[in-house]
Design a binder for these strands. Sequence first.
DNA 1: AAGTGGTCTAGACCACTTT
DNA 2: AAGTGGTCTAGACCACTTC
Lengths: 252, 252
Amino acid sequence: MSSETIWPDEVFSDLDRNGPVPLYYQVASRLERAIRSSVIPAGSRLENEISIAQRLGMSRPTVRRAIQELVDKGLLVRRRGIGTQVVQGQVSRPVELTSLYDDLQSTSHEPTTRTLLHAIIPAPEEIAEQLRIAEGTDVLHLRRVRRSDGTPVAILENYLPAPFTDIAEDDLDTRGLYQVLRARGVAIRVANQAISARRAKGDEADLLGISRGGPVLTTERVVFNDAGEVVEYGIHCYRPDLYRFETTLVAK
Amino acid sequence: MSSETIWPDEVFSDLDRNGPVPLYYQVASRLERAIRSSVIPAGSRLENEISIAQRLGMSRPTVRRAIQELVDKGLLVRRRGIGTQVVQGQVSRPVELTSLYDDLQSTSHEPTTRTLLHAIIPAPEEIAEQLRIAEGTDVLHLRRVRRSDGTPVAILENYLPAPFTDIAEDDLDTRGLYQVLRARGVAIRVANQAISARRAKGDEADLLGISRGGPVLTTERVVFNDAGEVVEYGIHCYRPDLYRFETTLVAK
DNA sequence: AAGTGGTCTAGACCACTTT
DNA sequence: AAGTGGTCTAGACCACTTC
């Protein structure tokens, strides 16, 4: 309740209609900035789509698309016959399809990596199945410890099929696996991921600096490229006191 | 490589152009069914959008929207200048904005609930902050154990602000919290959620039937309704050997 | 040069909510 | 009755990839 048709103005002063950045994206970005900085306050109602389109001098579908972006992000809520409103809470970024290295880097920590294992092995049955290749085919097996400011936060185990089996150990010291793949022209698009938890086993507790048998947060993911082919199978475990997955869910 | 322009035909035999179901949704559903049942095989390329539109007798934007739905779900991959292809792997359903009760029910288990705590309390600071209400305001505090076929799988702790503090204990025995809320006209739209892990503490191990100090998978979520208002704050913990979150990530 | 998806326009009609 | 978002049309031009 109590949501006036508030509407700020100079939010869209610098739209570039000839540049390479899509119009809808520019509008969405500026709207998001205005919402996150409370220039458009939480709970307030937006002007209707047609008015916005007229005032910005663009078509309604373009405005709609911009708004839809923010609805999908969970910042806005639309109701037919009512209007579009800003959600009350601040919104966390979704689970991104980036490597942990990028995540840590973007949150201004200093990530480092130590490689424990770097070997080419014939794929065991389960790995082959996940990678959609024949059992026994050569794959690159990696096991690394990821540190943030010197503190271990995760153990990363990865399996990569050809043509990535020649990735060098040195490449992975200063860059995340995904950065290395991107540099090789791999466009990562889709991943299937499962998150769960279990006791630390083997050397994991020592590597992470937690007590034996203590809890670890686990992920298992299969990553696909642009062409829908499998690029990587990863089994990771994280220190749960230092890491959590934050996401925004939007009802379909 | 090796992706022919395969294209089946009688997939779209029963489109209803006058019913209430949107055209793009019908097309997307039928396409998804065809892909999941391998009528359209993994890795194959789709016809281009304009041809599809012509053959189905609809406009290109409508076809585009249908395809986009499946791209967002991670079933299809689009590349400019190349075409649209089916992703290799089978796709898991994303983390849904449903209650655990619904989840368990839809996977054909028999969920039951035992309420441990059902009390109205003045909101402590942290709870008030999450619910965006004043400290000390009355909230409903719930603590329940969720079982699947008699086996405990989760401990659910929830805090609800007015006007939901009058939800009766009986209501929650046979239905999930979200079902109860929906029955009261609440349309759930957005949630911010964090997933992590920790040791079981207090009575949790006994309630879940796991060893003392064993690992539990935890979630913390703030749920918003249609109007962007906070409906619920929940802190849940799950038996990690019986529960995991599966999701499909799609690069923006 | 030809073919693909990406963006954008300028409307139209409808379903739903509020007055 | 008036106002809102939801869907759909029939085009247009562009950027990118392949031949």
